[in-house]
Amino acid sequence: MSAAFAALPADAGGDAVISIRELTKRYGELVAVDGISFEVRRGEVFGILGPNGAGKTTTLEMVEGLSCPDGGEVVVDGLSAWPDPTAVKARIGVQLQATALFDYLRLREIIHLFGSCYGVRRTPAEIDALLDRVGLLEKRDSFADQLSGGQAQRLSIALALVNDPVVTFLDEPTTGLDPRARRALWDVIRAINAAGTTVVLTTHYMEEAERLCARVAVMDHGHLMALDTPRALVRGLGADAHVTFTLSEPLPLEALCGLDGVSSCSAHDGEGYAMVADSAQRAVVSLLDLAAARGLTIENLDVQGANLEDVFLRMTGRKLAEEDEEDERTDEPEKPRRRGFLFGGGG
């Protein structure tokens, strides 16, 4: 772990809507969440970034009142979540990973029913307005099992807003969605935040965290590795960019690594070179000078800005997410299933 991440700016200072202190959860031998502390500021989009199994969902479950912590405390909007989470549950909205819905109910009926769970009675106009916020107004009379993956997630988010929560928790809201549906969902989340609701989301997509979140907590193996704005986290890397290129003639690595603005370099497949630059500008200028001096031709020059993926790689030595393109949900509606049981009412 780099020294740059040692000091965690975990204290939100002024207006913290969520305060977590020394939160711990064990499952037998496994310590799923290991004494983490941080605060979420009122009105921000707060991201928890980490690979599968990092403890993101477990952390959220303890904040949401679904899973009792083994140690530490959670305060949401001034209320302690434990031992009795009922009051906290009334003030938060929750979207869980598994989309949980009733067959045979129309969208507007599901929203009415969930409102009822929070003791609020939504009028048809309010229900329509809520569906409109997540772009599902035209689906108000559809059944939940007629929705595409992206639509189901949006319904799930609508349900997380039904009680006008102070904070809404979105657990991997875009996992499994195709890029188009993912972007549409980002717009929905931005709009929710713009309307004044604090949003806490978990993700293992670094792009999602970078684009949506004011601040990001990086988790791995139940620990909080870092917490800051995405920009500050990347800057903390000491790396500005990745520079890759090929040369017409091979060149010793020492010559490249010594260039101004370059912090490290490597050779790939005998032909390509990769440099990590602390200053992209100086590294590229000095590379061009070197090539000109030696009469070499630079080809396939590519400069890529450092991102949260690099932050995570640096801190854990592992990649954040394997690209799971193959099991992406498509945006096509699933075939409606009409399940019934032999003898008797399954409905």
């Binding site: 679904l66 549950k89 869980l96 819905l101 349900l159 009412g345 399954g346």
Partner: peptide, 28 residues
């Protein structure tokens, strides 16, 4: 049959689909 299928059928479906978990996240 109504009692057993009605209860076991629905509760297990709701458990499996996460409906129970979602409802537990409400103050209901």
């Amino acid at each position: 049959q109504t009692a057993i299928f009605g209860i076991a059928g629905t509760i297990v479906t709701y458990k499996e689909k996460g409906v129970l978990r979602r409802l537990r996240a409400t103050p209901l």
